[in-house]
Simulated assay, not measured.
Amino acid sequence: MSAAAHRRARRRTAAAVLRRRRTENRAHRDATQRVKVSDFLTSQGMPQEDVDRYGSWAGRHIASEYRAAHHGHQPRKTRKRTDPCKGHPNGFWVKVNIYRADDPALIAGARRYNRTAEYVPAA
């Protein structure tokens, strides 16, 4: 086998290994349950009116805690359709952060915001 053929074979093998790792990581990542801040606050027993009113500010505190705990990395994003309103009879799409269901930043951020602190259990 020539040197060039040997290098090509090594590159193909390395590419296959990386492809397999990415596939395994993607399967693990997709298996973890992700929640939006509104879903988290609702599961903690907060009334829907308060979730609509204070959820955005709670999300800002939670995102800040997440960035502090993860060396400045941003949380993952998803899209959420808003409720219908004037000018948007079907609502419109907004980007929101999602977190793992067991992420400590959810509890820490919600405890830091006074309006949601009473709904979150003490750490």
Rank of each mutant, 00 (worst) to 15 (best):
His6Tyr: 09
Arg100Val: 06
Val17Trp: 02
Lys36Phe: 12
Ala3Gly: 05
Lys80Gly: 09
Ala122Arg: 02
Thr42Ala: 14
Ala63Phe: 01
Lys95Ala: 15
Ala105Val: 02
Ala117Phe: 05
Ala122Tyr: 00
Arg34Asn: 09
Gly59Glu: 05
Gly45Trp: 05
Ala3Phe: 10
Arg81Asp: 12
Arg81Trp: 08
Glu65Phe: 07
Arg111Phe: 06
Tyr54Asp: 12
Gly109Asp: 06
Pro75Ile: 08
Pro89His: 10
Leu41Asn: 06
Arg29Asn: 12
Ala31Ile: 04
Arg34Trp: 13
Tyr99Arg: 03
Glu65Ala: 15
Tyr66Cys: 11
Val17Lys: 11
Arg12Ser: 14
Arg34Val: 13
Gln74Val: 14
Arg76Asp: 14
His61Gly: 08
His6Pro: 00
Pro89Met: 08
Asp103Ile: 08
Lys80His: 11
Ile98Tyr: 00
Arg19Ala: 15
Thr78Phe: 05
Arg20Tyr: 04
Lys77Cys: 13
Pro84Asn: 07
Ala123Lys: 01
Phe92Tyr: 10
Tyr66Gln: 07
Gly55Met: 03
Lys86Tyr: 10
Lys95Ile: 14
Arg67Val: 10
Tyr99His: 04
Lys77Ile: 12
Asn25Leu: 03
Arg76Cys: 13
Gln74Ser: 15
Thr32Val: 13
Asn97Leu: 05
Arg100Leu: 13
Glu118Met: 14
Arg11His: 10
Glu49Leu: 12
Arg79Leu: 13
His70Asp: 11
Arg11Thr: 11
Ala122His: 03
His28Tyr: 10
Tyr119Asp: 00
Pro121Asn: 03
Lys86Glu: 15
Gln48Thr: 13
Asn25Trp: 02
Leu41His: 05
Thr23Lys: 04
Cys85His: 03
Pro75Met: 08
Leu18Gly: 04
Gln74Asp: 15
Arg112Thr: 06
Val17Gly: 02
Asp83Leu: 15
